[in-house]
Write a protein that binds this DNA or RNA. Structure first.
Length: 902
RNA sequence: GGGAUGUUAGCUCAGCUGGUUUAGAGCGCUUGCUUCACACGCAAGAGGUCACUGGUUCGAAUCCAGUACGUCCCACCA
């Protein structure tokens, strides 16, 4: 026979099988009315992204689900693709251009997009190639890209449709401005980060337009005392309001100072004015409930252009808006001497200037949550700008109901509450982005300021001509909106657009595959992706896009930190695959990752996966290494083992199916893991193993191969490569006979009686081995066993003899020098070689067992002695308790008898 | 500040509608073994008053309330 290496080497195997699967087109799918569809659309990774541990977890789960469905005979389709990720990609391209000495704004939109597409062609989709290394069984012929022409057309079509329905509007709103990306970003893309900040206490001089100085003085003194300000004598004639702010660089944009209407300290200031420090501009004092009297000094500087609350305050009090910050974070002309400088530089400088002018009372250091951009990390600037919005009100109720009624089931369900909170408080969606990489908003402005929204230039022109009545209006008279749409405005269409459901709403694909079955994604995008896909599904297909949403956890390092590029704490998945094999990485990721739970990553898990693969490999080696005897009879132990393992297999298959039904993927894996390691290798193979040097009988080998094959099928979704390899090495296969398309095992009737009997026999075996270990006796030394009565082992003598290496089993009284073994309901004695029996040690062991048994009996008796228990407990519970009592009594009697015999 | 969720062995987690559980698994640990598939292994073993305090119940890791600590989500406090 051919020499099989004793260590499994995945590297040589994985690429070969992946290529074979592709060659046979096993992952391809097309509508097949005879089969039930099972569909997953991949959450599209960023087109310029590289594989990280989060992708590994996510895509492994998807692959496990899709491979199992395929084996179950469903028409399984996993649609891959990438997302154009406007901000992230545009940032990368801008950085690349910068390296080449080019500036985005200088080269212009068209040239920029050429560079961007060139970049995408070169680096885009690397991540999909990496997923192939993981074994992802996607239908690659269906790979889509959110910015490809067809999907772009869908986006434009949807925009126009929503605009026609009156759900899209354009308005000035306070948005989260990213000064680095120079674009507005959505609330969801803002990350609050704890940062050290400084609170400046500034003096706003009261304008003395009337003589009420006594009152004013008393009020301001109080304020100054609160602020621990030194009394500055040369300023004595003047009085000040002390205002706390973390943003002194915006004081020139202040339009008022505001107090709480109930704040007694400031009542007399109604109708008065103050001067902005350094700038000496007079602004009014106003009162509004928004301000808390007990925060800071109770005085708020109102800066409508740079704070959302101040903006609303400004609207209520009819105040002007002064914008002092440019799109890139530098200050405008309105900032006077500070114009052109960066906001943070000005903050520093103005602090110094205020101090020098005696206008700074004090500065406090504190830590607070600051909004930053998820994509660029820049500190967000609340900024007023003209943006496009999608109304959420028309959609929220239905989208909420879909999840609350479990029409879309979230796994785990704890996320339902989060979803509800968000959906109930959802705000209009700002869908415009001041970028170039993305779908350009199909809105056109006419010279007279009128607006036309249309799918194409030609349609826009026609409409414009109709509006203006000018039939010769040239296209050049129309100016298209410069902004592009938010990336999520294309991803929310993904489950429909990958099947061309917008271009051709009644095509065979969309009718067959939609709605999809499972979506596997991270909880952090539950709102801005999952929720919106539900809305889109309901709006354009009148049907939710998926039945189940499996929310994964976050992969963390040993210190519990999120794995990230910047921390450098993430291993390179491809290195891991090269070192341990994709199967090992897949199982490692799944060992400890129930839905919604974070995965504390530890390389040990991957190693465990590799060890497991090697274990199975060696089980196969063992079978393959045996000589076969055609006419040898099947030994009793092997026959019993065969029946028993069939029962275990049926039992475990049922459990695995249950785990899958409840999306307990880790549990499903662990069940196969133990079935293979403990039941198949440790018990079954040991039981059927022929005596050294002898051949195995043909029946047993055939049975064992059959069992192994079933195990391969159960394990295939988790470790596709290894199982495929063994599948083909086990015996010759037909042209298209592959493990990856073999039938998923179905569970048959379980012989529970046999399972119970065998479990008892294994207990006996363990007790005997325990004795050997305790006495330091080699497992190779065959020992005789004496049973108290002939029924003790209930026909399982062969099992005990084989596994415990027992030479003979006789019935009768235990001879002197035999060590008692009471286990699995049997009363036995193991005959040891002379001199190895220590009576005192044995007595101690028996006494310990006796004490446990008596304790157990006491707890059962306590229950049974309780009249209320006997009166109230269900009959079957009572029966169990009585059986427990009888068993305990028998056990105690046996132990006592053995103690007397010592 | 609001909401969700968790606290079970050294670590990571099961324990699904209270009763075969004086609590299980994997890893780790201890001891012995290079035994003929596998040392990426085999065998045996140690290890937990189920966060705390009350309550409901014949019976609580499991249900309820409170406390402590943790995690996550949401939120405009200058």
């Amino acid at each position: 026979m051919i020499e099989i290496p004793k260590t499994y080497s995945p590297a040589a195997v994985e690429d070969r099988w992946y290529a074979a699967w592709l060659r046979h087109g096993f992952f391809k799918s097309s509508p097949n009315p005879a089969k039930e569809p099972y569909t997953i659309v991949m959450p599209p990774p960023n087109v310029t992204g590289v594989l990280h541990m989060g992708h590994m977890l996510n895509n492994t789960i998807q692959d496990v689900l899709i491979r199992r469905a395929r084996m179950q005979g469903k028409e399984a389709l996993w649609v891959p693709g990438t997302d154009h990720a406007s901000i992230a990609t545009e940032a990368k391209v801008v950085a690349m251009l910068k390296d080449q000495g080019l500036d985005k704004r200088e080269i212009g939109r068209e040239a920029f997009l050429e560079h961007a597409f060139a970049w995408k062609e070169k680096y885009g989709g690397i991540i999909l190639e990496q997923l192939k290394k993981l074994g992802a069984s996607c239908d690659w012929d269906r790979t889509r890209f959110t910015m490809e022409p067809k999907l772009t057309a869908a986006v434009i079509q949807v925009f126009v449709d929503l605009h026609r329905k009156g759900h899209i509007y354009r308005g000035i709103r306070m948005v989260n401005w990213d000064p680095v990306g120079r674009t507005a970003i959505a609330d969801d893309e803002v990350i609050a980060k704890e940062m050290p900040m400084r609170m400046f206490y500034l003096k706003y001089e009261l304008v003395e337009d009337e003589v009420r100085s006594d009152e004013v003085r008393s009020a301001t003194f109080e304020v100054e005392r609160e602020a621990n300000a030194p009394r500055t004598s040369h300023l004595a004639p003047r009085t000040y309001i002390v205002v706390a702010t973390s943003r002194p660089e915006t004081i020139m944009a202040d339009v008022a100072v505001c107090f709480n209407p109930a704040d007694e300290r400031y009542q007399h200031l109604r109708g008065r004015k103050v001067r902005i420090p350094l700038f000496n501009k007079e602004i009014p004092i106003i009162f509004d409930d928004y301000v808390s009297a007990d925060f800071g000094t109770g005085a708020l500087k109102v800066t409508p252009a740079h704070d959302i609350n101040d903006y609303e305050l400004g609207l209520r009090h009819n105040l002007p808006v002064i914008d002092v910050i440019h799109e890139d974070g530098t200050l405008t002309e309105a900032a006077g001497p500070y114009a052109g400088q960066d906001r943070f530089a000005v903050r520093k400088q103005i602090g110094k200037d205020l101090d020098a002018a005696g206008l700074l009372v004090k500065v406090d250091d504190y830590v607070t949550a600051v909004s930053t951009s998820e994509r660029t990390g820049a500190v967000i600037e609340p900024k007023l700008s003209l943006q496009w919005f999608l109304k959420m009100e028309p959609f929220k109720e239905k989208a909420l109901a879909a999840v609350m009624s479990d029409e879309v089931q979230l796994v785990p369900p704890k996320f339902k509450n989060m979803y509800r909170t968000w959906m109930e408080g959802v705000r209009d969606w700002c869908i415009s982005r001041q970028l170039w990489w993305g779908q350009r908003i199909p809105a056109y402005y006419l010279p007279d300021g009128q607006l036309v929204v249309a799918e194409t230039d030609a349609e826009a022109l026609a409409e414009a001509r109709r509006l203006t009545g000018d039939l010769n209006l040239p296209m050049t008279a129309l100016r298209q909106d410069d902004d592009v749409l938010d990336t999520w405005f294309s991803s929310w269409l993904w489950p429909i657009s990958v099947f061309d459901g917008f271009e051709d709403p009644d095509n065979a694909d969309i009718n067959y595959y939609y709605p999809t079955n499972d979506l596997v994604t991270a909880p952090e995008i539950l709102f801005f992706w999952v929720a919106r896909m539900i809305i889109a599904g309901q709006e354009w297909r009148q049907q939710v896009p998926f039945k189940n949403v499996y929310l994964t956890g976050i992969v963390r390092d040993a210190q519990g930190r999120k794995m990230s590029k910047s921390l450098g704490n993430s291993p390179d998945p491809l290195d891991l695959i090269a070192t341990f094999g994709a199967d090992a990485v897949r199982t490692g990721m799944l060992f400890s990752s129930p839905a919604g739970n974070d995965l504390p990553y530890d390389q040990k898990l991957i190693e465990q996966g590799r060890n497991f693969n090697n274990k199975l490999w060696n089980a196969f080696r063992l079978l393959k290494g045996w000589e076969v005897s055609a006419d040898a009879p099947q030994p009793e132990a092997a026959a019993l083992a065969g029946q028993w393992f069939t029962a275990r297999l049926n039992q475990a298959t049922g459990q695995i199916d249950e785990h899958f039904a409840a999306y307990r993927i880790s549990d499903a894996l662990l069940t196969v893991y133990k079935l293979i390691w403990d039941d198949f290798c440790s018990n079954y193979l040991e039981l059927i193993k022929p005596t050294y040097g002898e051949a195995v009988d043909a029946a047993t080998l055939a049975q064992a191969s059959g069992h192994l094959e079933t195990l391969l099928r159960l394990l295939h979704p988790f470790t596709p490569f290894l199982t495929e390899e063994i599948w083909h090495l086990l015996h010759e296969r037909g042209e298209r006979e592959y493990c990856c398309v073999a039938a998923w095992p179905t569970s048959g009737p379980v012989n529970n009686a046999l399972l119970t009997q065998m479990a008892a026999a294994f207990e006996v075996v363990q007790a005997i081995r325990n004795q050997r270990a305790a006495k330091g006796l080699s497992p190779n030394l065959a020992l005789p066993l004496v049973a108290r009565d002939g029924t003790a082992l209930a026909g399982l003598e062969a099992v005990v003899r084989k596994l415990a290496n027992v030479s003979a089993i006789t019935v009768g009284e235990a001879p002197a020098g035999a060590v008692p073994v009471v286990a699995g309901g049997a009363e036995l004695a193991l005959v040891l070689p002379v001199g190895s029996f220590d009576v005192e040690a044995e007595r101690a062991r028996l006494l310990k067992d006796l004490a446990y048994a008596q304790g157990f009996l006491a707890s059962v008796d306590k229950k049974l002695g309780n009249e209320k228990f006997v009166a109230n407990a269900k009959p079957e519970i009572l029966a169990t308790e009585q059986k427990k009592r009888a068993d305990a009594l028998a056990q105690i009697a046996a132990l006592e008898a053995q103690l007397r015999a010592l």
